[in-house]
């Protein structure tokens, strides 16, 4: 069956076909959710090789867990949950490596605000957004990625991160204040 024909199938049909060993069906799922996973992992880790690896690992984990997927939540939410968890693990891993070489003096700071630059010098708003995101602590960053980048509702974000909705709202409010501060010269 040509690849194009799989585009007409629903997610659950593609999952069933993937379970029965139809790799093209799984490939179609990868194409459908590739951008969503990219937004999550690159928002969390930055636009780098580590994010590409985590993105790939996300789909491999999803493939391994195909049998376990019951369809209780939307597939996008399920994959995003895997992507967020793997990203948070990667951040922890990177933090451990960094802590071997650097002192912990800066850990007291809640947010690492980058140096203010002349708006004309920072023509690339993409880079600007990435820098601002990476300046946030991972728990705040994950909320911003889910709510402001991916457009999930508070309830969905709470379910993905397994925290109460109130925590999402308070983290989002604090993150927004910080982002507003960080991006002051550019807005």
């Amino acid at each position: 069956m040509p690849v194009g024909d799989y585009a007409s199938y629903s997610d659950s049909e593609l999952i069933e076909k993937s379970k029965h060993g139809e790799d093209v069906a799984f490939g179609e799922l990868v194409s459908r959710y590739e951008q969503q996973v990219a937004g999550t992992v690159k928002g969390m880790l930055g636009d780098n090789a580590a994010a590409e690896d985590v993105g790939q690992e996300t789909f491999i984990r999803f493939y391994r867990s195909l049998e376990k997927f019951r369809g209780d939540s939307a597939l996008g939410t399920y994959i995003t949950r895997i992507a967020i968890n793997l990203s948070l693990n990667e951040i922890k891993k990177q933090k451990k490596v960094i802590s071997l070489f650097y002192s912990r003096d800066n850990e007291e700071k809640e947010f690492d605000v980058p140096e203010k630059k002349n708006p004309e010098g920072e023509s690339d708003t993409k880079e600007l957004v990435d820098k601002a995101l990476l300046a946030l602590k991972p728990e705040f960053r994950s909320v911003v990625v889910l709510r402001m980048l991916q457009g999930y509702s508070t309830k969905e974000a709470a379910s993905i991160l397994n925290v109460p909705a109130g925590t999402i709202l308070s983290r989002l409010a604090r993150a927004q204040k910080e982002l507003r501060k960080i991006l002051e010269p550019f807005v």
């Binding site: 590739e34 993409k126 980048l149 457009g151």
Partner: peptide
């Protein structure tokens, strides 16, 4: 404006991402 900056930020993987995933699978 801050919110708009974030909502308009689109990310994508490098070329051949799908093929790499399928190879790994």
């Amino acid at each position: 404006k801050v919110r708009k900056l974030f909502s308009s930020r689109n990310y994508s993987f490098s070329n051949g991402f799908r093929n790499r995933v399928m190879q790994a699978v």
